[in-house]
């Protein structure tokens, strides 16, 4: 059977290009959430009182706790990149382990937070929201959509971290080739940044 020789020359390496690609992807994420923030602004403007009351229903303690741990996880990712640059594989793995743990913890908290709200009757289409009127329905509609899509990003982040940890263990990511880790870190900072906006908008503004 005739077979042509394998080509490897076009598998070129360009870390700058890879990072540029990631930044472009981050722009798309910003526009996606930007539209949600736009909707939030429109509906808050139309229903100021209901949004005020809605915010008081949310648990500021869980929100604050999640904000703090997410900030810590951003720091641990950044530190793991430094560790890889210095060739300290074990330290990088430990730091990524902490990040992964925090990401899971964030979702666990979210699960209990949502569970409590749903048990109480705050969910789309519930009788309680129907009684409370349009403004509250919209507040909780947006709350579930925005924090839900954010949680989906956390979930994708977990997948990325598992991949990166696996690649570090196989020595595919190391001190001279770590753009995958850097890009995962960029993504994680974005996820963190979006939460930094979601948190005050839903929990704190009174």
């Amino acid at each position: 059977m005739e077979k042509h020789e394998e080509h490897t020359a076009h598998v070129h390496r360009d870390d700058e290009g890879d990072k540029l690609g990631m930044w472009l992807f981050i722009f798309t994420e910003l526009l996606l959430f930007g539209m949600l923030f736009l909707m939030y602004a429109v509906y808050r403007h139309k229903n100021p009182e209901a949004f005020l009351l809605g915010g008081e229903e949310l648990d500021v303690f869980i929100g604050t706790f999640n904000t703090v741990i997410l900030l810590i996880s951003s720091a641990t990712v950044a530190m793991s990149i430094t560790a890889i640059q210095r060739g300290n594989k074990k330290q990088a793995l430990v730091l990524l382990g902490i990040t992964l743990f925090i990401a899971v913890l964030f979702l666990v908290n979210k699960y209990f937070e949502w569970g409590a709200k749903i048990e109480y009757g705050f969910y789309p289409g519930s009788d309680l929201l129907h009684e409370l009127g349009h403004g509250t329905t919209l507040f909780f509609g947006l709350y579930y959509i925005m924090s839900g899509i954010h949680a989906l990003h956390i979930l994708i982040g977990i997948g990325l971290f598992i991949y990166v940890v696996w690649q570090i263990r196989r020595d595919k990511i190391h001190s001279t080739d770590y753009v995958w880790l850097e890009n995962t870190g960029l993504y994680w900072h974005l996820v963190d940044l979006i939460w930094i906006f979601l948190f005050p908008l839903f929990y704190l503004i009174h």
Partner: peptide, 11 residues
């Protein structure tokens, strides 16, 4: 039925 585009729910 989250309501963001539905006039019956305030959207």
């Amino acid at each position: 039925g989250v309501g963001v585009f539905d006039p019956a729910l305030g959207g």
